[in-house]
């Protein structure tokens, strides 16, 4: 209908082959698989990045991307990730953590060794902060152990927000007022900031779960929450992620997936554990347990 194109629109004539090249690039870098059926999603984000970088065409944008200059790979990855979450999401898994997983972990844990919990992807921090709040409210032995919580994500933009720890009312919708009162400051109407003590207790790191070398910096965890990430991967990337989660866990450690995900169809590395509140996956204590 429009008779004249804007400069943006001219830059955005992208062929299916160019989309395929971009998707292949993203896949190789992140394991995230986008196909033709996600064309609208891809086009929108690609358009944003072409405009944001001032590229004159897909070709010039793709050259910039492949050059690794200006942090464009990171910007593109940030644009393609989905980051919506809220506090106490899938609360039944938090209940499972304190009722069943931590007691199991503690049975074999040497004294003075910290409990380590990893939230990946952590998005803007709701999940790792939820773990912290949940433990302080529901784990009676919370004062007897050093507990380390690490939140990681591939998207550096959300990690910066997670460190800030400022949330709107929508993120807090499942938290009772008493917990909001106890763990949040309310600097301005509609804005809630995690109190400094909790904020300073959680470490946030960048990680790509299909990059073994990056995950190698995240090891020795007792519990990993990896929810609603594997659904974005293809079979090969899911298996790599499963191997990396296995490697990140201590023997006997647990991984919790999202309610629509199952490890059994991805990998036989883990043992399925059915607890009253959740199905979780355990790294076997010994090699023999798994063979």
């Amino acid at each position: 209908m429009a008779q004249s194109e804007t400069a943006d629109e001219r830059a955005f004539h992208v062929t299916p082959e160019e989309v395929r090249r971009l998707c292949e690039f993203l896949y190789r870098r992140t394991g995230m698989l986008f196909a033709e059926d996600k064309r609208y999603y891809i086009d929108r984000r690609l358009h944003e990045r072409i405009v944001a970088t001032g590229s004159s065409s897909f070709q010039s944008y793709f050259a910039l991307l492949r050059s690794g200059l200006e942090g464009e790979v990171e910007h593109l990855v940030n644009a393609f990730t989905v980051n919506e979450t809220y506090f106490f999401r899938e609360e039944h898994q938090l209940r499972c953590m304190t009722n069943d997983l931590l007691p199991t972990v503690l049975r074999n844990k040497p004294p003075n060794e910290p409990i380590r919990i990893w939230s990946v992807p952590c998005s803007t921090g709701e999940e790792p902060y939820s773990i912290g709040i949940w433990l302080m409210e529901h784990f009676p032995a919370v004062d007897d152990y050093q507990i380390e919580i690490v939140g990681s994500d591939i998207d550096t933009r959300v990690l910066a927000a997670a460190s800030q720890g400022v949330y709107g009312t929508r993120s807090l919708m499942k938290l009772p007022p008493s917990l909001i009162e106890r763990y949040f400051e309310n600097p301005s109407p509609g804005a809630y900031r995690i109190d400094a003590g909790l904020r300073n207790s959680i470490q946030f790191t960048e990680v790509n779960l299909v990059d073994a070398r990056a995950v190698a910096q995240h090891q020795g965890f007792d519990i990993v929450l990896c929810r609603n990430l594997l659904i974005y991967f293809d079979d090969a990337s899911r298996r790599i992620a499963a191997e990396n989660l296995y490697e990140a866990l201590r023997p006997g450690g647990f991984v919790c997936l999202g309610h629509s995900e199952t490890m059994s169809r991805i990998s036989s590395l883990f043992r399925v554990c059915r607890y009253p509140d959740a199905i979780v996956y355990q790294r076997p204590e010994t090699e023999r347990d798994n063979d």
Partner: peptide, 17 residues
């Protein structure tokens, strides 16, 4: 505050070739 920031436990050396 019983929760502590990581950094007190150095990660084990990865055995990646």
């Amino acid at each position: 505050m019983p929760l502590v920031r990581r950094g007190t436990t150095p990660p084990p050396e990865p055995a990646v070739a």
